[in-house]
Amino acid sequence: MNIDHLRYVLEVEKCGSISQAAKSLYLNQPYLSKVIGELEEELNLRIFERSNKGIQVTPKGRDVLTRISHIVDEVDELDHLYKGFEMPFSFSVAVPTASYISAAFHKFIKEGQPYKNGLDVAYHETNPTDVVDLVTKGECNLGILRVFDFDRDYYNHLFEFKNLQSQVISSFACVLLMSESNSLAGRKHIDITDLKNQILIRHATDHLPKHTVSYLNDIIHQTGVTQSIEAFERASQLELLENLEDTFMLVSPMPTDLLEKYHLITRPLNTDVLKAMDLLIYRRGYTLSPGEKRFLEDLHKEVQAFE
């Protein structure tokens, strides 16, 4: 019997709905339904009665839930007594290079101060292959993966194979990032061919799936761009955009304060070929800690600012 699964059952009772509990726990609904079914089978009784109107706790289920609540309380008390005052605050996440994610991370860390018992945090900005690898191996508890629409089926199969769960954090169309003084800055509508005489600032990365690289290269080819600069560090990229005439990047929506700091603007691109989503991934059955849930809340606030 898994203590995390017992917590799941209590959350279902609290929410009065498996679907609402799944959202609260950042779990897929089918997985949560499976966990509840397996627990009921193990106990040889029905905890919940399902209907179109939701769920109802059975009489025997009520007794079981009371006992489960006592068990979870005892475990939490032990954890508080023997771990809470000794262990440092621990958090690990692997992410793409995205300004809105780093902004959420900065706020998350700042809000948690002071860390009386120490701090053990790992924030990996890396490529999609490493994000999946770090989460699968347990070196990071959470990962955020940028997936273009044409890549979704590939990653769905990969998550199934790697025993990972995923949840959409944000969906967006990539935008043009450029200086306020860029020759295209005054245009409200920019076509992909308008970029022909611009210099592309590319994020230097490797370990992308071959079909992803091929697709993105085809898009760059459509622009007619013949000049590009690869830069890995985000600060270097932004400084190039600010100081080098007629440069651009294709990015996710950017925080306003960062745009103002580097005198940059974003403009929509008249194409549907660069729609993407950022997915939260974690190992199947993993229970998010209170700190991890707080990070996701900060992340959702950043997303709401540009949606």
Results as ranks from 00 to 15, higher is better:
47 I>D: 10
22 A>Q: 05
34 K>D: 14
20 Q>D: 15
10 L>Q: 09
20 Q>S: 13
32 L>Y: 05
30 P>G: 07
49 E>P: 01
8 Y>M: 09
47 I>G: 12
52 N>S: 04
14 K>M: 10
35 V>S: 14
24 S>Y: 03
54 G>F: 14
5 H>P: 03
22 A>C: 07
38 E>Q: 15
17 S>H: 05
56 Q>G: 10
24 S>T: 09
50 R>L: 04
39 L>H: 11
19 S>C: 00
27 L>R: 07
26 Y>N: 10
11 E>P: 01
41 E>V: 00
38 E>G: 07
14 K>A: 10
18 I>Q: 10
22 A>L: 07
42 E>L: 13
37 G>D: 14
6 L>H: 02
46 R>A: 09
54 G>D: 12
43 L>K: 05
27 L>H: 04
6 L>F: 12
38 E>C: 06
24 S>R: 11
30 P>Y: 08
19 S>R: 13
34 K>I: 06
9 V>Q: 02
23 K>M: 06
32 L>D: 02
55 I>N: 08
45 L>G: 01
54 G>K: 15
28 N>M: 08
9 V>L: 14
4 D>H: 02
31 Y>G: 09
32 L>M: 03
49 E>M: 11
13 E>H: 11
10 L>M: 11
4 D>S: 08
33 S>N: 08
16 G>I: 10
30 P>H: 05
26 Y>E: 11
24 S>N: 11
6 L>R: 10
33 S>E: 03
13 E>F: 07
42 E>T: 08
41 E>H: 13
7 R>D: 05
12 V>S: 01
35 V>M: 10
31 Y>Q: 03
19 S>Q: 06
28 N>R: 09
26 Y>T: 02
11 E>H: 00
45 L>K: 10
25 L>W: 02
50 R>T: 06
42 E>A: 12
2 N>P: 13
8 Y>V: 14
21 A>N: 06
8 Y>A: 12
16 G>V: 04
41 E>I: 00
6 L>Q: 05
47 I>H: 07
